[in-house]
Nucleic acid binder design. Structure first.
Ligand code: ATP
Length: 746
DNA sequence: GTCGGGCGATTTTTT
DNA sequence: ATCGCCCGAC
């Protein structure tokens, strides 16, 4: 334990050895906040004799939780020690599965957890019931407003203050019905998990005292991104002991869009007036250049407290910047650069970060083609795939007969002749007689003038469900999944489709069985409910194993992680900052913080790239200007790579930056590996002098370096649109503009 | 009444 | 790529 403390600086040590009472640690990126949490846990167990199960640590993502678990494990050696380390949501599910009865509502422990798909179905159902037109009130936006409303609430017992405009009134109306339905369906959405846990602690002294007694030490990472209900939960857990340690960085607050509230930091200081405030100012992660560049970007935020952050690390390379003509070239550059870094870095030391999940596709393709191992974190989630969701919906409905959303999802999947009309009649009766849909289906279908076909189909469906339900009790999740797939005819149905798409789906279902089996083996937990919890709470199949390859993920996912090499791609206005976040200064500042988070993930090398043209899903390519964040980095911190060249870190870059690249061009690289290189369409003036080409790099005495993105007219009349790195897009007349061609590397 | 094909609109970020 | 919607086939 003495050796533990050697790895800490004095400020960190203070935060670790003072184990009693409230602590607030505010500090910049890479200053060792997470290290404080992990060491504090280890110290509590090792030096203070605290029982591991008396400690609860909360992180923001499952990845972060896993990471923290293994770090703690490592600090404590081989001893098998299990403090509770999880996300807010997992913790709440854990609490609610054993105590939800004490809410005094009609919930029971087999409650379903609704993901966004389920939520949308429910919102649509509510809209229909309220005779509101989906066209006028998009379910998506209603849902997001409901979520915002809920996350601003102290608890679900509290009614929102009445709104004055019509739309807000509609939202509140839908919200009320939506919550009532969730209760009827014995289901909770993600927000409810927190809110109902808070409500449980408000209402049940016994539950509250139980957990306060159990969790004597409470630690929270990424505190800046907690929302109101999460803060209230923490406050409950801290109880009278107030052994609460929270760490955060307001510059890394990137979840305000889902209700994260910096006010929590102020409230913490109000609610725990004797809290010790600790600031950490030394960054241990990044090179000076990376840190300076990231700091320069985030300084452009006006609504910011500001803080000191310095490092003893080397200056390192400048931030490397590559400007490509289109997204394909960007992917090619990244691929070539990763290959050329191959001698210095292992693939798993490299991360590829982007703003939106959709951007991963191209990179996946080039990496796969080249045989470079990679893993994708998040994105198209396994448990959200249609076929997987379908089977999980069967499970959910078997376990929780009130789960009508799942029932309606699977009642005619595979198609068994129970169509819209039939379901309509059943629902009508359910509403009239105040029965659940399933009760009507199972017991009260007479006299509904159903077709013979519908009637027999229902008869068989009822038999199927009753049969499955009877067997379910004795089966593990994996066996039940297998049984459901066979008995429901789902597998046969997919096999009948016969195309490769269906083959993929079958494979995914086999993988589902597998993941259930692995879960059972890893946890010794056979219950279907607990497997269903897991599928709702964790996004990835256990695909995220360290050391498996280049890590591809969104910037949001990367929070809290660190990599020797980071590629931050798609730095274009409209993409990053994202067009939908450019509406207000607040949103823009959040995008900027996201950029700061991304840049500060890098320890040694940071590559930024940008594509002039990019085609969105199927549509025509759009041209865009470089992200404003690029222009916010002081030029002297940037090393602008020439098109077609990769950076070669073996040469000494800080002396002569322009000579720092390898002479192997990307083109040669592709030729060597026999990959067709994406070409840009050549256009330009035919007469006399060498014409300008689209995508060509030029230099303007006033505007600096830029790339030609459009050419109009011919000869003397040629007009060029040039995207300049520093000043953005300009239209120039070729004859007058004193443009110099920079080079012709392709 | 049900089902499947074709068509158009639509996707930020996550638990 | 996927979902909702519309239309024609059974
Ligand atoms: N006192 C220290 N001595 C040496 N290395 C340290 C020290 N404190 C932290 N580090 C290292 O610095 C890096 C960043 O630490 P950590 O992830 O805990 O920072 P953080 O503040 O949580 O970062 P962020 O907010 O950016 O996620 C890690 O690699 C960690 O091992």
């Amino acid at each position: 334990m003495i050796s533990l403390l050697k790895d800490l600086n004095p400020a960190q040590r203070e935060a670790v050895v003072n184990t009693e009472g409230p602590f607030l640690i505010l500090a910049g990126a890479g200053s060792g906040k997470t290290r404080v949490i992990t060491y504090r846990i280890a110290y509590l167990i090792d030096a203070c004799g605290v029982k591991p199960e008396q400690i609860v640590a909360i992180t923001f993502t499952n990845k972060a939780a896993d990471e923290m678990k293994s770090r703690v494990q490592r600090l404590l050696g081989k001893r098998n020690v299990n403090p509770w380390i999880s996300t807010f949501h997992s913790l709440c599910v854990h609490i609610l599965r054993s105590r939800i009865g004490e809410l005094g509502l009609t919930y029971n422990r087999n409650f379903a957890i609704y993901d966004e798909q389920d939520q949308l179905r429910l919102v649509k159902e509510c809209l229909r019931e309220l005779n509101l037109d989906e066209k006028l009130f998009s379910p998506r936006s209603i849902l997001s407003r409901i979520s915002r409303l809920k996350n601003s609430l102290a608890s679900l017992e509290e009614l929102p203050s009445p709104a004055d405009d019509y739309r807000s009134q509609v939202v509140e109306q839908v919200f009320q019905l939506y919550q009532r339905r969730l209760l009827e369906l014995n289901a909770l959405d993600f927000d409810d998990l927190i809110l109902r846990a808070v409500e449980l602690f408000n209402r049940s002294a016994s539950a509250r005292e139980h957990y306060q007694e159990l969790y004597r030490y409470c630690l929270v990472d990424e505190f800046q991104d907690t929302n109101r209900p999460q803060y209230l939960l923490i406050r409950h857990l801290a109880g009278k002991r107030k052994n609460l340690c929270v760490v955060g960085d307001e510059d890394q607050s990137i979840y305000r869009w889902r209700g994260a509230d910096l006010g929590n930091i102020l409230d913490f200081q109000k609610d725990f007036p004797r809290a010790t405030l600790i600031k950490l100012e030394q960054n241990y992660r990044s090179t000076q250049n990376i840190l300076k560049a990231a700091g320069a970007v985030v300084k452009h935020n006006i609504h910011r407290i500001g803080k000191t952050l310095w490092t003893e690390n080397l200056a390192g390379e400048k931030v490397l910047f590559y400007q490509s003509l289109d997204s394909i070239e960007e992917a090619s550059f990244v691929l070539a650069q990763i290959v050329s870094l191959g001698s210095l870095y292992k693939t798993h030391q490299i991360a590829l970060l982007y703003r939106t999940n959709a951007q991963s596709r191209l990179f996946e393709e080039v990496l796969a083609r080249q045989g470079i191992p990679y893993i994708i974190v998040g994105g198209m989630r396994f448990y959200e795939r249609k076929e997987v969701k379908d089977i999980l919906a069967y499970l959910s409905f078997l376990i929780n007969p009130r789960d009508e959303i799942s029932l309606k999802r699977i009642i005619n999947v595979p198609p068994r002749g129970i169509g819209e009309k039939t379901i309509g009649k059943l629902e009508e009766r359910a509403a009239q007689e105040k029965l659940s849909l399933w009760e009507v289906i199972a017991k009260r279908r007479e006299g509904l003038s159903l077709t013979t076909k519908g009637e027999t189909a229902l008869e068989r469906f009822v038999k199927l469900i009753k049969d499955l339900r009877q067997k379910a009790a004795a089966l593990s999740a994996s066996s039940l999944i297998k049984l459901v797939m066979d008995a429901s005819g789902y597998l046969t149905y997919l096999k009948g489709e016969g195309d490769e798409r269906a083959a993929d789906r079958i494979e995914n279902l086999m993988e589902l069985i597998n993941s259930a089996r692995e879960y059972e083996e890893a946890t010794g937990e056979g219950s279907v409910t607990s497997f269903l919890s897991r599928t709702s709470l964790t996004s990835d199949e256990d695909s995220y194993q360290e050391g498996r390859g280049v890590v591809l993920m969104t910037l949001h996912c990367a929070k809290g992680l660190e990599f020797p090499v980071v590629f931050l791609v798609g730095l274009e206005e409209g993409l990053f900052p994202h067009i939908r976040s450019m509406g207000s200064e607040e949103e823009l500042e959040e995008e900027r913080r996201l950029c700061y988070v991304g840049m500060t993930r890098a320890a040694q090398l940071l590559f930024l790239s940008y594509a002039i043209r990019r085609s969105a899903y199927g549509g025509r390519p759009r041209t865009s200007e470089p992200s404003r964040f690029l222009t916010e980095i002081p030029p002297e911190l940037l090393n602008i790579l020439e098109r077609g060249k990769v950076f070669n870190p073996q040469k000494e870059p800080s002396v002569q930056p322009t000579e720092a690249y390898s002479s192997e061009s990307i083109k040669e690289f592709f030729a060597r590996h026999n990959i067709p290189f994406p070409t840009s369409s050549g256009e330009g003036a035919p007469n006399g002098k060498r014409p300008y080409r689209l995508g060509e790099e030029v230099y303007h005495p006033k505007f600096g370096k830029g790339v030609i993105i459009d050419i109009e007219g011919e000869g003397e009349e040629t007009k060029l649109t040039v995207s300049f790195l520093r000043v953005g897009r300009k239209k120039l007349i070729a004859r007058y503009a004193q443009l110099k061609k920079v080079n012709d590397s392709f």
